[in-house]
């Protein structure tokens, strides 16, 4: 019960800030995830994700605009290192209209089965090379819950609820920022190799130092195993 109250208070706090002096923007975030097993231990994930903005508010000015922001392309190689555990390294290219950011990714994931739900933990770090040789380093922790909506586990042609909660620690030029993400998604499993998810990707940044910066994306994910 305490956890529910915590989440409810957190949600109210976010809403209060959202309509206050903070800045915000929202848009759409479609993504395609392709996964393939190279052997019994090794697998590869290729992901592409685009961002398109619909509206933003900065300095108390609301700006309605349709603007393409960027597209990410990432390739991650993972090795099974234990029972339900994977160690992965990868590279991401963020392609913007005028430049490309490069990011190196390292992550460790654990997936656990429980009676009636599954839970995953992801510990990750990444280093982004930006313009003028600036480097942004992030340490991230994400918890993911998968809750079947039609049975004890998610079978094909069934719906499920997926909730991600992530904490991001960002370091750049001797400055620190804390980010939070909450991503509730409704998923549908066509087959064991194909899933579609739809939901909200809510991000909160810069709330430690200045006015909080809210970002909300309509998230559409397609996971395909080949």
């Amino acid at each position: 019960m305490n956890t529910k109250i915590y989440f409810f208070c957190f949600f109210l706090l976010c809403c209060a800030n959202f309509f206050g002096q903070s800045s915000y923007r929202y848009g759409i975030l479609p993504a395609i995830n392709l996964n393939t097993d190279l052997s019994k231990k090794w697998s590869v994930n290729f992901k592409t994700e685009a961002r398109h903005i619909f509206q933003e508010k900065t300095d108390n000015v609301v700006n309605r605009r349709q603007e393409y922001i960027h597209t990410d392309f990432s390739l991650i190689a993972a090795k099974k290192v234990g029972i339900g555990n994977k160690l992965s390294v990868g590279f991401l290219a963020r392609v913007r209209p005028n430049d490309i950011h490069k990011r190196f990714i390292q992550q460790y994931t654990l997936v656990r089965n429980y009676d009636g739900y599954r839970m995953a933990h992801r510990f990750a770090s990444d280093q982004t090379l930006e313009i003028k040789n600036r480097v942004e380093v992030r340490f991230r922790y994400r918890t993911t819950f998968e809750i079947p909506l039609q049975g004890k586990s998610v079978d094909f042609k069934e719906f499920y609820l997926k909730v991600n909660h992530e904490i991001l620690n960002r370091f750049e030029n001797n400055s620190y920022d804390l980010g939070l993400r909450v991503i509730p998604l409704l998923g549908y499993k066509y087959t064991d190799k194909s899933k579609l998810e739809f939901g909200l990707d809510y991000r909160l940044n810069s709330f430690l130092k200045s006015g909080p910066n809210h970002t909300s994306w309509v998230s559409i994910n397609w996971y395909l195993k080949i």
């Binding site: 994930n45 339900g84 994977k86 997936v111 998968e146 586990s153 998923g187 996971y223 195993k225």
Partner: peptide
Amino acid sequence: NNSDHLEY
């Protein structure tokens, strides 16, 4: 069950 959607 496949868990790619929980890892990435």
